[in-house]
């Protein structure tokens, strides 16, 4: 009897660890091991000798600086544009007009579409003889000979095109976070603002936005993290190397060059590490501002 209760209490103590063990094992095997190998492998050549050549290659890669610039420039500009638009849209939805539910439904459709489908759509859309120019012609905005060259392949127009495509696909998820934040706001505070004579704008500026601060940070940082995905659209629209980003270089070297010359695997690993470090620091920043670290102390 005594031993039974004893074994039961051991079982009870062990239960959560047994339940969580598979997750830890799985993560250790399929996540931590690759991560460690990436860090480790980046410092070795094909024969297993220690070398800094892979990193030297990355930092001397003529595309590296461009990749850094493009990654950050596109991320920052598109995040800014997307945030302003998403914020406006969520204010709109928050008015709770008739049909807001339907509108929210429509606005979230792009979330479900695979990147590849989105790219197929825009690639056919933005061709000079594609559907966007056709539409502009049908509504009388351009003449038959006035087709707009959206895809010239030059740097700035390409960046512009990419930001628009990305905004189309990403605004919905940003909007949802903001709408959620707004709905959780204390309405009384806003009412108080109106009672004390605030206009819509001052209430927005002095009450809504400050109260939404943590929601906004969440939305922004999550967005910056997923901005790393932007390489896919770029590659699909313009091919590799036309508008290099960090991740597109990583995939380019590992998928396009390594089969002919395996040393590119090691170089791609160096790229992996750089990408991982940049993203991890943003994630940690996110966890910090979102207050996840503080919760830990409360237990």
């Amino acid at each position: 009897m005594d031993s039974l209760t004893h074994s039961r209490s051991i079982w009870k103590k062990a239960a959560p660890y047994l339940l969580i063990a598979p997750t830890i094992v799985w993560y250790g095997f399929f996540w931590a091991r690759p991560v460690i190998q990436a860090f480790y492998g980046g410092f070795f050549d094909l024969n297993g000798h220690f070398t800094l050549d892979n990193y030297k290659f990355v930092f001397n890669d003529p595309y590296f600086l461009q990749a850094i610039f493009n990654t950050f420039f596109i991320a920052i500009v598109s995040v800014a544009v997307e945030f302003v638009l998403a914020f406006g849209l969520s204010l709109l939805i928050n008015i709770r007009f008739k049909g807001a539910g339907v509108f929210l439904f429509i606005a979230t459709i792009p979330m479900a579409l695979p990147f590849v489908a989105i790219a197929a759509m825009w690639k056919a859309g933005l061709a000079t003889y594609g559907w966007l120019n056709s539409f502009l012609y049908h509504v009388g905005l351009i003449a038959k000979n006035g087709k707009i060259v959206f895809m010239s392949g030059n740097k700035w127009p390409s960046i512009f095109v990419i930001i628009i495509i990305d905004a189309w696909g990403v605004i919905p998820s940003m909007m949802i976070i903001l709408v959620a934040g707004m709905q959780n706001l204390n309405e009384e505070l806003k009412e108080a603002g109106y009672i004390f004579g605030g206009t819509r704008l001052t209430v927005l500026r002095k009450i809504t936005i400050p109260l939404l601060k943590s929601t906004i940070t969440t939305a922004l940082i999550l967005r910056i993290i997923s901005a790393i995905q932007i390489w896919a659209i770029i590659t699909l629209m313009f091919g590799y190397l036309r508008l290099p980003t960090l991740v597109s270089q990583l995939v380019f070297y590992s998928d396009q060059r390594a089969p002919a010359d395996p040393v590119y695997y090691q170089r791609a690993l160096a790229y992996s590490v750089i990408v991982a470090i940049i993203i991890s620091s943003i994630v940690i920043l996110y966890l910090k501002v979102s207050g996840s670290f503080r919760k830990e102390e409360n237990g």
């Binding site: 000079t128 003889y129 010239s152 313009f238």
Partner: peptide
């Protein structure tokens, strides 16, 4: 060259369209 030549990975679509 056509204005969009830098984005052609294949000339077939552009030729078919008359671009």
């Amino acid at each position: 060259f056509t204005p969009a030549v830098k984005t052609y990975d294949n000339v077939v679509p552009a030729m078919k369209r008359g671009e």
